[in-house]
């Protein structure tokens, strides 16, 4: 048992599992730092997973599918942005509506395109990309890309003018507005970035599974929110939380043969989030203007 946990294969499996948590969690961090709660991540991922499947199915080129998936994610996020930033309507209700829309829209379209509301046809995966070295971790462009994105976006958020402005509109939009920052535009950008990243997360699910199945995101968009909170609204923190979740889930797969209580391991991210939110592990303080529409005086 122990040797299987400390193997490279186990580590790679943990990384692969944490990918579809990490990408949307990074996105959620950007959205909430700009002041917009994005509960729609789950729906965005689902729509992107479907768009990736359709794109790959018709082009037979996974790269094309992933691009279409990310764009579909941004388009869905744009809808959330229009409702919650432009119209200043309730961000949580908007997110829930988009999640319901995603379930319906993907199954509806799946029925029309693949003549089954629950399964798509098989699509090609990343096997075609043979230009990467045959070394664990490095041979998976998605893992490499995600690591690079995290390193890059941590810097963008905390060391660039753009990041400063993004955080400013989430902390104190009045002050940012006075300083000449366009609050609405920054918030739209925050939501769009979250859409692109959650879209990549959904794309990975479809590419990894070689198909779309209904509801395949299985709550990952919400676990991503949990990771963002446990990571205290920072990219590195979110990455740490996602690795922890990936490790726990990997472990539960190993345990499946010997134990019947995998459901309790599934609860870990949720219980941990509640403990962190209650302030038992340091303080978890969201951006001050998170979730509050900005009304210009």
């Amino acid at each position: 048992m122990l040797e299987s946990v400390f193997s490279i294969a186990f580590f790679v499996q943990s990384l692969r599992i944490s990918l579809p948590y990490a990408l949307p969690a990074l996105g959620a961090t950007f959205s909430e730092r700009s002041g917009v709660i994005n509960i729609a991540l789950e729906g965005i991922m689902l729509i992107s997973a479907f768009a990736t499947t359709v794109g790959t199915y018709y082009s037979n080129e996974p790269f094309m599918g992933i691009l279409i998936g990310a764009l579909a994610g941004m388009l869905t996020a744009l809808l959330h942005g229009i409702i919650s930033v432009t119209f200043k309507a309730d961000q949580i209700v908007s997110g829930i509506a988009i999640n319901v829309l995603a379930i319906g829209l993907t199954k509806f379209s799946c029925q029309l395109i693949f003549h089954s509301s629950s399964n798509s046809a098989r699509i090609v995966g990343l096997e075609q990309w043979k230009f990467l070295p045959n070394i664990p971790i490095l041979d998976n462009p998605f893992i490499v890309g995600t690591i690079i994105l995290f390193l890059m976006l941590q810097v963008v958020l905390f060391k660039t003018t753009f990041g400063l402005r993004l955080r400013a509109v989430g902390e104190h939009p009045e002050a940012a507005d006075t300083a000449g920052v366009n609050v609405k535009r920054m918030r739209h950008l925050g939501v769009l970035i979250s859409g692109a990243l959650a879209g990549l997360g959904g794309a990975w699910l479809a590419i990894d599974q070689h198909s779309f199945t209904d509801g395949m995101t299985a709550g990952r968009g919400f676990i991503a929110l949990a990771a963002m909170i446990i990571g205290k609204w920072t990219p590195y923190g979110a990455a740490g939380a996602c690795l922890l979740f990936g490790f726990a889930e990997s472990l539960s797969i190993q345990l499946q043969s010997t134990s019947h209580a995998v459901q309790f391991i599934q609860m870990i991210p949720y219980v941990l989030t509640m403990i962190v939110l209650a302030g038992f592990i340091g303080r978890a303080t969201p951006p001050a203007a998170d979730g509050i529409p900005y009304e210009k005086e």
Partner: peptide, 21 residues
């Protein structure tokens, strides 16, 4: 496809949000 119900439900919510504003 019966999934039209989810689509309609979501559209109602989104429009309620916008029209009430």
């Amino acid at each position: 496809p019966k999934e039209l119900s989810n689509i309609l439900q979501a559209i109602v919510i989104l429009f309620v949000l916008i029209t009430s504003k």
